[in-house]
Structure formats: C-alpha cells, structure tokens
Amino acid sequence: MKKLTKDDLQAIKQEELKKETANWIKVGLSTCGIAAGAQDIYDFLVEEVKKRNLGVSIQRCGCAGMCYAEPLIEVKVEGMPKVFYGKVNKETAMKIVEKHIGGKILVNDHIYDIRSSQ
C-alpha cells in the first residue's frame, strides 16, 4: 500500500464519517468484558441482526469503564435515546433485539447510562 500523506488522513476520515450508520450497537470487548461473556453476546447479536435483517451494525470497542456492569453494550437506533445496557446475558440481548430495536421501547432493569435523550 502507498504511504499516506496528511491529505489521505483527511480523506480516510471523511470516508469513515460517510460510512456511519444511524443504527448501531457497540459491544465492549476488552479483557473485563470478555471475562464476563461479552464475546458470546457479540456473536449472538451479529447472528440475530443478520437473521432478522435489522440493518443494525454491530461494532466492537474497548472498555467504557463500568467494569462492574460488564458485559456492557451501547445501543443507538433511530428515534431512541442512546443507551448503555449492562449485565447483558443472551436473554437480555434477545430482549434488546426484540423490544429496543424491534418495538422501540426500553428494556427494564438493565440500563446503566443514557447518553442522549433522543
């Protein structure tokens, strides 16, 4: 691959910004998350989203700091607040897929933070 220049950096940035989707889920996949089972949740979400054709991109990220609440996932879908769900097991992940993404309602008892109100 050719060497990058400063302009190329800008180009990559713009390209990446264009690729941004309105609907995404980030799964914290650092050691703390993985130890709590986040890899299974990641795989499960990828599978479910594909199966149901939901148009939500599943992404990985580092530790958001709330290690006590791992596995921690951040969910943003259009028309809903940006929410951190913690202590997510497969059952909760299913609820998030069905209720939060499908039914546009928040899931009880697993919200650890809300970063945007709409």
């Binding site: 990559i12 940035k13 990446e16 910004l17 980030k26 990985r60 990220c61 958001a64 700091g65 951040e74």
Partner: peptide, 27 residues
C-alpha cells in the same frame, strides 16, 4: 468524570486504524 486518556476507550474499534483516524487519529 473527565475522559481525556480514555477518550476513545469504548468509542473506537481498537482493531481498526480507520476508526481511529476518523476520531482525529494521527492528526
């Protein structure tokens, strides 16, 4: 809290250089 060092932790994909560049990486 004030996340400076941890600004990208939980935000960028640690396995993608493009995602880091998107968040002003290598600027």
């Amino acid at each position: 809290q004030l996340r400076l060092v941890l600004r990208n932790c939980g935000l960028v994909d640690p396995e993608s250089i493009d995602d880091y560049i998107k968040h002003d990486g290598y600027q």
